[in-house]
Design a protein around this nucleic acid. Structure first.
Lengths: 163, 163
DNA sequence: CATAATTCTTGACTCAGTCAAATAAAGGGG
DNA sequence: CCCCTTTATTTGACTGAGTCAAGAATTATG
């Protein structure tokens, strides 16, 4: 998958434009800015994407957007998700988190104390856990989602962790 | 685990009373009614638990409760969860779903179309998927949660499914 | 440059869940 | 059997996340 390398350099506008158009989406400043923000920060909430976008915009980056509405943010993220550029997870107790779709099949470890999320490469290969038979009775699996719950190193040591 | 057989018969009040007191919880009509409702219906939302409880109550069952406040419902479910009698899952896009804690380590298959949830026994044994090493870097896993997404038999056939 | 199609903003709204304080019920001791 | 302390429950206001609908602005094409 070359996707990651394409979007990992937010400075390269042409790549972002091509990426969007390849997927049948118009290239807009907001979409480019959201992709850039996610390329630099995995696991952002919708609100955090908004903050990143405006922060990057105010510092005059390549996708200079200084504001975008909440609805616009949801629209952009949903459009990117629909064409497969972006993926979201919704750990219990957390608002949705967005990340670039890397094409690998990684899962997530979520700290019960601080809520931090780590990527966990899937040990089983590229399309693991897909055991249609397990579900039985005609259920057709298209995705297996795994979340490991526990404590991250920092929270386990710190004891009084709650950030 | 004998838990399931204990609470699977909502008519047996004495069992529910003992179950609660064993866990250090007072036996109240609401708690017994919620356990009864979950014994008969897996994967209920908070609202559905409320409906079941009032429905069962109005038909004069053993835990005759005809009403309970929303906050009371949340309190009861949280108390039961805390002592390990009840478990909840929160599939993306759905409000929290509650089920009795059966002690097995089953997972869930969720239909993308109709939202129905099926239990899927864990193929790997009683405490599967717990691969602390996979998370790396000092993360200590205490639970692995697996959700299989796909289409249930009914929705796959029906085509225009959306219930 | 004009136009049609798509995207974005605005503001009201819903739904799920939480907080805090007053009221009611449970269960053990007299 | 009744009282008292502890524990549950109700009430009502509130927050946060996400959605809906309609009008305004932007994109890309001819």
């Amino acid at each position: 998958m070359t996707l990651y390398t394409q979007v990992a350099y937010p400075g390269r506008m042409a790549d972002l434009v091509a990426l969007l158009r390849d997927k049948g989406l118009r290239s807009t400043p907001h979409r480019r800015a959201v992709l850039s923000a996610l390329a630099q920060n995995p696991h952002l909430t919708v609100a955090q994407v908004g903050e990143e976008v405006t922060r990057a915009g105010s510092s005059g980056g390549p996708s200079a957007v200084t504001e975008l509405s909440r609805q616009g943010l949801y629209n952009v993220l949903e459009d990117l998700r629909r064409v497969g550029l972006v993926r979201s997870i919704e750990p219990a107790g957390s608002p949705a988190l967005f990340e670039l779709q890397h094409g690998d099949n990684h899962h997530h470890a979520v700290c019960r104390s601080c809520g931090s999320v780590r990527d966990v490469p899937c040990a089983v290969g590229d399309t693991p856990c897909l055991e249609p038979s397990a579900a039985g009775d005609g259920f057709v699996v298209d995705e297996a989602e795994v979340v490991w719950w526990g404590l991250c190193a920092g929270c386990r040591d710190g004891g009084r962790a709650d950030a």
